[in-house]
Design a protein around this nucleic acid. Structure first.
Length: 647
RNA sequence: GCGCCUGUAGCUCAGUUGGAUAGAGCGGCAGCCUUCUAAGCUGCGGGUCAGGGGUUCGAAUCCCUUCAGGCGCGCCA
């Protein structure tokens, strides 16, 4: 809505600059004045023009304002400050088309391209913790925004089912618990939580005797080899844990299109092909002298030997980074080799989750990979490795593909001392935070956090609405709990370390998911009351289309409503910004700001829809509330936050 | 040693490509429920934007530098 308007206004500004000063203006950017009474959009172009024209910004602004005053959609243009041109929009026309756009969203335009987003990618050896939740919430929200902005997105969850972490748990079963596959299969309950504890014990087992590490090496080797009892146990562990992870993320509405398995990358020899390509194109070189003799290395930066990254060891085995390069090339459609695929599950709404496989796939799989852009949601600690992968793609001559390889890096989640203590860990007095450590079993499990939120939400719901149907109360509590969690994970910029405090995360007031949800619930409630009083919302909206919106949007209430509508209309601009900066926190903040503006308006008795002084006023307010509700539903959907019926 | 990130109100954080009087939540204080849901609203108090220098009509934002904290840089994954 606002973006189309800005595009039209930008050409008007260019035209005005051309007529007034005979100068081409390539970049026209709009800003927002600090207060609505100053204007709706601001131009800073006069400041830029001042230099080229050698004239005072203020003079330029006045001439530009005169030229723009008659442009369509602009009511008037004013000069302010040292040389701003403030534009006042035609409020009535704007509000009308805003509601129209929200009531009848256009069918999605042409695709802006196919992109791959990889997120979650948790080692399948233990329960998901809060750090994983941050990854999944960021990734899932980013996917929702991309899709809403007409990108065609494939969501991939990478499963490292043949890595050391799975091997560690297998070591635990075989050497600590002396359990074979049938016995492990008989373990019931939350298998991921069981493995969480076992994994911590394996850490102790290794620490107790250096020789115990040999078990890890031989187990990993057996798993990579395949077709033996150890490998089958590893596969069982990984498969069961993946199902648990999918269930945990499913509680938050997070889904995937493809589970990409490391074991298939291995069996289908993706690396061998990537290795050939890297050699053919001279992207890597074989060292014949120096400390890396016998290795294949990727030159990094412009430095010497120290900056080279070893891709293939002198014993001929490939490093983790090498496998990553192969996988990235496949995502970009630059590895002439593909997985086989089969359906993993189909959800009630028809959404299909596929998995890679290395033998006889199933027909009907969508085209995975072949992306124009790839976003890897991985913690910031992997920046170096992700940089190597990107450099390798570039070294192969795939400049555009390297440019389209994005590392959506985010900082870690640590525990507040209070929360760490509550979990039973000793914390010394001078620590301001405690690191999550899977090895020590330290951390907050995702399911436990969700359960705690759910319990708190139930208590709140029961206290407010004791007479309500239990199933409905449970539905509300679930919506509130997930809303609280997702908002909490999204409200911080991705490059910021989150110090997780249980009490803070359990808050339902202030800048939280429930606050935003509540705004929609209250607004929607008005419609129910209207209908109960014999009004029909459809009629009121039809009536609103006939009244003079421009007049309704002037004056005290008008100004307040106008600033709400203008703020709302910026949603698509914020979405584009979130994509550009790869930071969805912007969207969370925006949703909160919109909700806040509505709460404030709604609160005033003189703005009541039900008790409006006139039919026109009632119709006008109905239009406003309807616009708000529709916009908010879009926003909350982007954030993956459900809207409860009541709360 | 090299590279990256961070430093803004008591606490947790926003602050768009440099732009108008630096904002929000929490906490504190004072108010608002016979009026569409108080998971709400209103008001008050709270700032050397880590320090210094520079560029600019204009700097929390860009450059240099100092200090403080965190992370990464392996023939691990």
């Amino acid at each position: 809505m606002i973006l189309d308007l800005q595009r039209r206004l930008a050409s008007a500004v260019r035209l005005a600059a051309q007529t007034a000063f005979d100068i081409p203006l390539d970049d026209v950017t709009f800003q927002y004045p600090p207060r609505v009474d100053l204007g709706d959009l601001a131009l800073t172009a006069p400041f830029d023009l001042a230099k080229a024209l050698r004239r005072k910004p203020r003079e330029i602004a006045e001439q530009l304002a005169r030229e723009l005053g008659s442009a369509p959609e602009i009511q008037r243009a004013e000069v302010a400050g040292g040389g701003y041109v403030n534009l006042f929009l035609d409020r009535g026309a704007f509000a009308g088309s805003l509601h129209e756009a929200l009531a009848q969203p256009r069918a999605s335009s042409e695709s802006r391209g196919h992109v791959v987003v990889e997120h979650t990618s948790i080692n399948p050896n233990k329960a998901a913790h809060i750090g994983h939740l941050r990854n999944a919430c960021l990734g899932d929200t980013f996917v929702r925004v991309l899709r809403h902005r007409a990108f065609d997105v494939g969501v991939q969850n990478y499963i490292d089912d043949t890595g050391v972490q799975v091997a560690d748990v297998v070591v635990g079963f075989l050497h600590l618990e002396k359990k074979d596959l049938p016995e492990v299969e008989r373990i019931d309950g939350r298998f991921d939580h069981y493995c969480w504890d076992l994994y911590a014990k394996v850490g102790d087992f290794y620490a107790a005797d250096p020789d115990h590490k040999d078990r890890q090496a031989e187990t990993l080797h057996a798993i990579e080899e395949g077709d033996n009892d150890t490998a089958r146990l590893g596969a069982h562990v990984a498969a069961r844990i993946v199902d648990r992870h999918l269930a945990t993320m499913g509680r938050l509405g997070i889904r995937y299109d493809l589970l990409a398995h490391e074991s298939d990358i291995l069996r289908l020899h993706f690396w061998n092909r990537a290795f050939e390509l890297l050699k053919e194109r001279g992207a890597i070189r074989h060292e014949t002298e120096g400390k890396n003799t016998g290795c294949w290395v990727l030159p990094m930066g412009d430095g010497g030997e120290d900056q080279n990254k070893i891709i293939v060891r002198s014993n001929g085995t490939v490093t983790y980074t090498g496998k990553d390069i192969a996988y990235q090339l496949w995502k970009l459609g630059r590895l002439d080799r593909d997985f086989f695929y089969r359906r993993y599950r189909t959800d009630g709404d028809g959404h299909e989750l596929w998995t890679t496989t290395s033998d006889e796939g199933e027909p009907g799989a969508p085209a995975f990979g072949h992306a124009e852009a790839v976003y890897n949601v991985i913690d910031v600690g992997q920046s170096y490795t992700q940089g190597v992968v990107k450099a390798a793609v570039a070294a192969l001559g795939y400049e555009a593909e390297a440019e389209g390889s994005h590392h959506l890096a985010y900082e870690k989640v640590v525990l507040s001392p209070a929360t760490a203590r509550a979990l039973g860990y000793e914390v010394s007095g001078d620590e301001s935070s405690v690191k999550v450590s899977g090895r020590k079993g330290l951390g907050v499990k995702a399911d436990d956090l969700l359960d705690a939120l759910l319990a708190k939400a139930r208590a709140e719901v029961d206290a407010r609405d004791p007479e309500r149907d239990p199933a409905a109360r449970e539905a509300t509590a679930t919506a509130v709990a997930t809303g609280a969690l997702r908002y909490f994970m999204l409200r911080f910029s991705r490059n910021r370390i989150i110090t997780f405090d249980m009490e803070e995360a359990l808050a339902f007031t202030g800048e939280t998911g429930p606050y935003v949800q509540n705004a929609v619930v209250r607004a929607r409630n008005i419609f129910g009351k209207l209908e109960a009083q014999g009004h029909r919302v459809e009629d009121l909206l039809a009536c609103a289309r006939k009244i003079d919106l421009g007049r309704a949007l002037s004056g005290g209430e008008g100004d307040e409503v106008w600033s709400l509508l203008l703020l709302m209309s910026r949603t698509e601009e914020v979405e584009e910004q979130a994509i550009r900066t790869q930071d969805v926190a912007l969207l969370a903040k925006h949703a909160f700001a919109v909700a806040q503006a509505f709460h404030s308006y709604y609160q005033k008795p003189q703005h009541s829809v039900l008790h409006a002084e006139s039919d026109d006023l009632r119709a006008f307010r109905t239009l406003v509330v309807d616009s708000f509700v529709r916009q908010m539903i879009v926003l909350l959907d982007l954030l993956g936050i459900p809207v409860p019926e009541r709360m």
